[in-house]
Nucleic acid binder design. Structure first.
Lengths: 347, 347
DNA sequence: TTGTAGGCGTTATCAT
DNA sequence: ATGATAACGCCTACAA
């Protein structure tokens, strides 16, 4: 009927003079097979250049050693660093990683989910797309027995799922306190889309810190962006800094926006940090190298990536009989004070 | 024997009242199946929540829609941007992408190659690990019928393979000419490991440009690094700038080293670009945002990524009867002059 | 310790 | 246009 393609266990069985079951067991180091036989079988396999077909194994055992990673875009600092760690940790645990960029599109996230389900992967590690506001596709995956771990961008609407996050509210609160502590008192905020929980939390933290400090919360000083790109940052900085009543500090919900804000401010002759303090979420590799260097908030991408894989594999290997208890793990962040908010000390 | 797991075509066949052959054909939109039947079958499939098992398809057809990507590290500008495009293009062409970070280890590259071969993937797009200096594992993949495309870091020892590169020699030559044109005449060079062809070529281009311009080629001004990290860049800058006979410009084989060189120089009171010109290979997202901004050489990661996938898929789909002609494609680079080499005009 | 045979979920060949 | 059935390559329950 169909032509066989490469060397398979039947060939090895013939070469070694055993049955295919013995060959299969020998190659998988089954305890029941004698050492001698194993040696013979493995020698035969080597002689023929046998490479076991993982597809067939997967079909037969109904499990795979592949993890799907859903992520918006790879070419941003935090995410590329996260995926770097994810892949590295997965490799160490014997898993491969399929990368699925959603480009922040809900549609594409769903399409990819179907592909991943069809591929019968072992589990999914996902950072929600910015656009995503319904979650049936995640339920679908879980119904099919695919384990899911959510990282960074999560939603309380997705139940029974391990989540690995930072405390966005608290972090924004403390970041704001840092600015206030540096003597800035008219503080603007550049937010991402608040339908994403983490942006809503950050905004709340910011507002709360102002309230606690008794500082004004000027609605004109709060702006929203869908993607917080460099260009968007510039556009919004322009808008904010052209108001009659200008702020003397800007807190941005990511670091790219902070950098473009600084660049724009300097361009129009506003001194940073003297006239304008700037702080941004998400440490980027270049935050420290800028002039002035940029005060930012480090998210522990390495720890998040490691934990995500470990928790996922833990759940994959969990006894199906026992009920697995899902955790929401909150990791520490670190405020890294740099020149861009350093109004107190002379540089 | 074993328990079946999810809804399969047998279930759909029963639900729809057809045989599994008809169901399979209907779901694949085979021309022989009547429109009515297709509608019925698809409705049945939807009713049962059927999701075709890609593993089984793959086993049966002996082909998969997965591309393996071998890359040293994801968290560097050029590579994360390349992989970003690779994934995006692959998605558009109906392929998924498995990411394999080698961490520049030859050993790990070989291990991954075995995994990829076992997974019976359709093809591989690879950027050689810095350590790699033998290539049997690539031959092995090709023997197994897996198509390979090499990007950026290639080797002439790997034959019959599509290669997508830049002209490293010419680019370094022109970069050096740019520095010379800015009035620098004592130029140092920071190289990567020259057993990698691209670093050897860049060094040759640098040397040739000096020769043509009649400038001295001081062996003390040429340094080598295995990984060109930020730390390495600092270490080497320190070494070069502490010589009695100091250069007045430094050309680094990547951009991270350029940035750390600038940072170190400024730290010890050397003005950039007035006292020291700095230029680096590989544009990074932060090259433009630095103070001073960094003159660098943009490698067309987007075009490289697109082409790599297109050529790979082209070869995968090529008629096995015809012989496929492999190309080496050389893409243009772009020198982006910025402040770090701008000695002529006042800023 | 080793062998036999059935099953995983498809696709493809050969009939009808 | 549709159906029956043998592959694809491996694993594993059961038998010996």
């Amino acid at each position: 009927m169909k032509k066989k393609t490469r060397v398979n266990i039947y060939d090895v069985a013939e070469e070694a003079g055993f049955s295919i079951s013995t060959v299969s067991r020998a190659l998988n180091d089954d305890a029941r097979i004698s050492a001698k036989t194993k040696v013979k079988v493995k020698a035969a396999a080597r002689r023929l250049g046998f490479q076991k077909n993982a597809i067939a194994t997967s079909l037969s055992t109904n499990q795979s050693k592949v993890i799907g990673v859903l992520v918006s875009e790879l070419n941003r600092g935090f995410l590329s660093s996260l995926v770097h760690t994810l892949e590295d940790t997965a490799f160490a645990m014997g898993y491969s990683v399929i990368i699925c960029q959603t480009n922040n599109s809900h549609e594409r996230e769903k399409t990819y989910m179907d592909t991943l389900i069809a591929s019968r992967i072992a589990g999914i590690i996902a950072t929600l797309s910015l656009e995503t506001d319904s979650y049936e596709h995640f339920e679908k995956a879980k119904e099919q027995g695919i384990k899911v771990v959510l990282v960074d961008r999560v939603s309380p609407k997705i139940k029974s799922t391990t989540k690995i996050v930072i405390d966005d509210y608290q972090t924004a609160f403390e970041g704001t306190q840092h600015i206030i502590g540096q003597g800035y008192d008219k503080i603007a905020y550049v937010s991402g889309p608040t339908k994403q929980l983490l942006y809503a939390d950050r905004l709340r933290g910011f507002e709360q810190a102002l309230k606690v400090a008794g500082l004004p919360l000027n609605p004109e000083w709060i702006e929203y962006s869908d993607d917080l790109s460099y260009e968007e940052g510039t556009r919004i900085a322009k808008k904010i800094l052209s108001r009659k009543d200008k702020p003397n500090a800007i807190f941005t919900a990511n670091n790219l926006a902070a950098i473009s804000t600084i660049a724009y401010a300097r361009q129009i002759g506003i001194r940073v940090p003297e006239d304008l303090g700037v702080i941004g979420f998400s440490e980027e590799p270049f935050s420290a190298f800028m002039q002035p260097s940029v005060t930012s908030i480090r998210q522990p991408s390495t720890e998040m990536g490691k934990l995500a894989v470990q928790k996922l594999v833990e759940e994959i290997n969990a006894d199906p009989g026992e009920s697995y208890i899902h955790q929401k793990i909150i990791l520490d962040t670190e405020l890294i004070p740099r020149e861009s908010t350093n109004r107190l000390c002379k540089r």
